[in-house]
Structure formats: structure tokens, C-alpha cells
């Protein structure tokens, strides 16, 4: 089965973080803002100019580029 990434989650759909599949700088940053394992993430809206999306993470609104969201492996929430 192909891994489901945060980019594939629809707007307003809940997802839980499984892992961050990269070792680049962004990993640390994503962990810092609270995207650790089992954190609830909900995409809320897209940008006009595309390529970035706002997510609700631990009560804050945080925008992440799709290129980076692709590296966040999640499972759909129920």
C-alpha cells in the first residue's frame, strides 16, 4: 500500500501523524511546532497562489508547503 501523506488529506478531514519521512532541516522544525507521532492535523484552506496549505495543529494555524506536506506520513482519522 502506498503511504498516505498529509498532502492527500482533504480539507476539513482529520489525520494523525505517523512519521516524517525525511531527514532534512524541515523535520526538526515540524517536530518543534508539535507534529510528533499521533498528533491530530486538519487541513483548513489552500492559498490563492497554490502550493501551500493552512493546517490546524495543536490549536494553532500553521501553513506548510505541499512539497513538505508530502513528506509527512499520516493515517486518516475516524
Amino acid at each position: 500500500m502506498k503511504n498516505l501523506s498529509l498532502k492527500d488529506i482533504y480539507i476539513d478531514e482529520d489525520a494523525y501523524v505517523l512519521k516524517i519521512a525525511t531527514n532534512s532541516d524541515i523535520k526538526r522544525r515540524l517536530l518543534d511546532i508539535g507534529l510528533s507521532k499521533n498528533t491530530l492535523v486538519t487541513p483548513l484552506f489552500d492559498s490563492v497562489s497554490g502550493g501551500i496549505r493552512a493546517y490546524k495543529i495543536r490549536n494553532s494555524l500553521i501553513a506548510i508547503r505541499d512539497d513538505d506536506a508530502e513528506k509527512i506520513i499520516v493515517r486518516r482519522g475516524l
Binding site: I26, R29, A63, D67, D68
Partner: peptide
């Protein structure tokens, strides 16, 4: 382009 996160502050 490098990665970054942007906080949309309340």
C-alpha cells in the same frame, strides 16, 4: 526552495 513553516497567528 527550502522548507519552512509559516504561522498564521490568531
Amino acid at each position: 526552495p527550502s522548507s519552512f513553516v509559516l504561522e498564521l497567528t490568531p
